[in-house]
Design a protein around this nucleic acid. Structure first.
Lengths: 253, 253
DNA sequence: GAAGTGCGTTGCAGGATATGCAACGTTCAT
DNA sequence: ATGAACGTTGCATATCCTGCAACGCACTTC
């Protein structure tokens, strides 16, 4: 591993907390100011860091562009999107697409029905991994030892009284999800929000992504939402088929 | 400037084009495979690149999270958002917020009325700089020599017959925009889309951002859209006032 | 089935390259 | 006017990165 690059990259999460001046960056990195300066300059030339008018540094524009291109190049997302949109048209609720990557599950697409407000704020954001239905599906597919090790390392914040409380409960839930091939989150993240989710599988049968339908229970009860399960599963299967190359676009009902 | 970091960062835009294997990365960088490997490993440890199942590398998840945090920490965006939402409620059209940074103008917020589809796809994306109304406002505020130099360097793609054709025309338009304090894009980017935009200024009077209202002319004609100009300008001024009032967090505590 | 090809990976020696130091230029507050 | 805080520069040292060559592995070819 390269020390110089390592230090330079450590600056990014540091700046993500908010703008910082040279001294602060140098301190946090544990290097001399002149060293930090050269690293920041290099980051700056690549547009990853921006120098605002008060001379402090913050994350730069290129970062957005990169993240943008990255998300647009995900083929699962591209394949899934029309299916998600169609599902949204039929049921009217919010539809999510998420993938597992490097100890995180994150939303990579979303189609929402009513509220345009802050829609972007979730795309690319890690999900609440211990409670989200899509997270359960992705993690349930990990090999057993890895799954266990991972569950042990997690925090289990009690978002609501129905949040997953600890590792054993989580592992038990994952086992059930793995068994039944779908998952729910009934008020585990926000009291009034329920989700049903289904897995999307690659050609080898491994879960490559998961999709969900979410709705507040002022609109539909959890039971009513569950009646959508067959539709959600069919959609997920259609995406799986198309992604793994077996099926073409037509055979979704 | 640090060579090692420079090389490492050059990998990112390369991967943004699509997944690549080690050999390809090494070739494009002009370094030995073993060197590329070590750089990629370091990027990997920081989550900026991901190694997919076929062993090829692509951009990683942390990139999204970083971009996410970065955009959420922009104080202009935070201040402006409620104003944009309110404007959207009143007129029903798409509302954009954009900033100039390092030779690019990019959208940092958007409130859309009807079509939830692919909403995120524009946030963080560079705008069509030669035609977009918000771009004109940002660039018109640059000091004259810089503005001229910049205009000379640009490409002038003819998106439509009404796109800005070349540097002289662009500079002339910028001068007019600067004069009148607002800008339009009447079918310069997409034939049927019109925009009106107004600048947001900091305490020193410099343009720090620009906002616009866009609508397809099947919904409202360009003339009708122009009747919104006073409302747009009032909104922009309100944001300017609030922004320059408590510019940084420290002096408002 | 054996030999060949392409790919990622490892350890190492040499030297390019990053590092910390000390000194200077500014800006701002006292 | 004086001092402090901060960013910036040039430079000598040695650290850390580089390219090489060899290896393991998977997959293709004859």
């Amino acid at each position: 591993m390269s020390q110089t690059v390592d230090r330079a990259l450590s600056i990014l999460p540091l700046l993500a907390e908010g703008p910082a001046d040279l001294g602060r960056v140098a301190d946090r990195l544990g290097v001399h100011k002149s060293t930090a300066l050269r690293l920041l300059r290099t980051l700056h030339e690549h547009g990853l860091v921006y120098r605002q008018s008060d001379q402090r540094y913050r994350l730069g524009a290129r970062l957005f562009a990169l993240a943008q291109e990255a998300v647009e190049n995900l083929d699962i997302r591209e394949i899934a999107h029309p299916h998600l949109a169609r599902l949204n048209e039929r049921c009217g609720h919010t539809v999510h697409l998420a993938v597992y990557e490097e100890n995180e599950v994150l939303y990579i697409d979303k189609v929402e029905s009513r509220y345009p407000v802050r829609m972007y704020s979730r795309i690319g954001k890690p999900v609440a991994i211990t409670v989200a239905a899509v997270a359960k599906l992705c993690l349930a597919d990990l090999p057993e030892p890895e799954r266990r090790a991972f569950a042990e390392k997690l925090d289990y914040p009690m978002y609501t009284s129905r949040s997953t409380p600890n590792a054993p409960a989580f592992l038990k839930e994952l086992a059930r999800v793995r068994e039944q091939g779908w998952a729910t989150d009934l008020g585990g993240h926000e009291e009034s929000i329920n989700c049903v989710a289904a897995p999307i599988r690659g050609a080898d049968g491994r879960v490559v992504a998961a999709m969900s339908v979410s709705a507040p229970n002022v609109v539909v009860t959890a039971d009513e939402l569950l009646t959508l399960l067959p539709l959600v599963r069919r959609t997920a299967d259609a995406i799986s088929g198309e992604y793994s190359g077996r099926t073409s676009v037509k055979d979704s009902v």
